[in-house]
Nucleic acid binder design. Sequence first.
DNA 1: GTAATTATTTC
DNA 2: TTCGAAG
DNA 3: CTTCGAAGAAATAATTAC
Length: 562
Amino acid sequence: MLLAEVVAAADAVAATTSRTAKRDLIAALLRAAEPHEVGTVARLLAGDPEQGRIGIGWATLARVEVAPAPASSLAVADLDSALDEVAALVGAGSATARRERLGRLMAGATAAEQFFIRRLLIGELRQGALEAAVADAVAAAFDVPQADVRRALMLSGDLGRTAEVARTRGRAGLAGVSLTVGRPLQPMLASPGEDIGAAVAAVAGPGDGRAPVAVEWKLDGARVQIHRDGDEVGVFTRNLNDVTGRLPGVVATALELPVGRFVVDGEVLGVDPDARPELFQDTMRRLGRRSGAGAGASPVGDSAAGSAPARDASRAGDSAASRAGHSAASRVGDAGPAPGGPAAGAVGLRPWLFDVLHIAGDDLLDRPLAERRAALAELAPAHRVPGIVTADAAEADAFLRGALQAGHEGVVVKDLASPYAAGRRGAAWRKVKPVHLLDLVVLAVEEGSGRRRGWLSNLHLGARDSDGGFVMVGKTFKGLTDELLAWQSAELLARETGRERHVVHVRPELVVEIALDGVQRSTRYPGGVALRFARVRRYRSDKTAAEADLIDTVRSLLPRSG
DNA sequence: GTAATTATTTC
DNA sequence: TTCGAAG
DNA sequence: CTTCGAAGAAATAATTAC
């Protein structure tokens, strides 16, 4: 298949806002593809090429300027192999070599193709259709039920393979896709809850006689899905990245459990010697460390295993997913203190489990949560996330307060009758965490892009200094309706004091109420703190900048670090 | 040696 | 994370 | 009412460029 056909389809998809039209356009393209190309084409249209991120970003692309070819000649396979080649370039001089190879690819591409390749590589296809849309198109193209395609996609985590299966083996083939120990599936997600009472009511139903719900601590770490098959262990993140080699302690824990074959779901989190959870930043620091990759005990084993970042976690499907058998030896060395890092006494990242998806040959996905929790209690009682079962909102509230007291993020309220809805952000799980509010001053604003082009969108936020000045503590563009965007654009434009690039500086007069989850240490901002998940609640027209919150108030939200 | 670039995770 | 569009 | 996509920040590590 010619790349031009794919690009034409992508352009047509971008040109319509109708989801069914998008689906039909993609379906027509998939039908036209050769059977062996279906997977590649599907992934291209979903903006997720098999090679993943290959070390090309906007900066690299900006330096590759090649006159477009007058006529299209590239095949899909040409693009695919070019991506393979670029991905294979590592080590000294690789960036130059990448640019060179990319330039050759671009020289053979028409203007439209070049544009598509750029968007693809940057990871922003912006056609209003990604994985889910393509999945629906797969169903339409090959005349198989949408639900079957989605299920296979969630269980395999692999759109290309799912598309190929649908094309070559149809409905029966899709039905044959099942949870496979060692291969990650899409994790179930929680939807946001207003507060604990609302969450309990939403999950259990309102009023008397409501069903009991599970209420569990919500830990501020990294989601992990742990697979064990005999002495093979694989650990995967929320995005199905393989982090087995970075979590020797988790591997060791998995190997200690009394059952040889299982899939469990949970969170990894560092804990201080005094049992307080580490800051998210510190947990991520540990997870980010790639020393100790693989099973070997050689602490300076170098990055021999897939030297390029992000590539050891490639989703090549059959990659070296799990080969971390004898990891106990590497555990002690790896968990050692990072230079300049926190707490030498910390024991490294530990798994906290809250679900079981498979155990000893039985898939539990379709079983009620109550049953899965019971299975977990038997499999790994010492590693469970603390939780209760209750029908009483007051009891749930008390448990939430306890979680916060212990330094955790909040709780997740779960329907005990619900199955494990892989890949869904359903109403069966509701997360509840406290919201902080701050009144901050708008110091500057950035021009919007995409559908916010023409508006002033991203706000630079400042807290009040003790001597009358303002200290920037973060930015946000969230929580703005189109109406509010229009209003703030006009108001801020009227206060413009100067511009640099896309940033419009304004007189610090407007006070905006910001909701946030908390604050974290920052090296970027002069106040030493940055807002976490800041979003606009409303403008405080009733307040002047002199009444905004102080930087010390912002700092007081910092959790005490380990 | 330091700065820039890219990629990764969380939300 | 939040919002808006689509169905 | 639900799903989906798009908008972006922050911190970190690895690697390359200068």
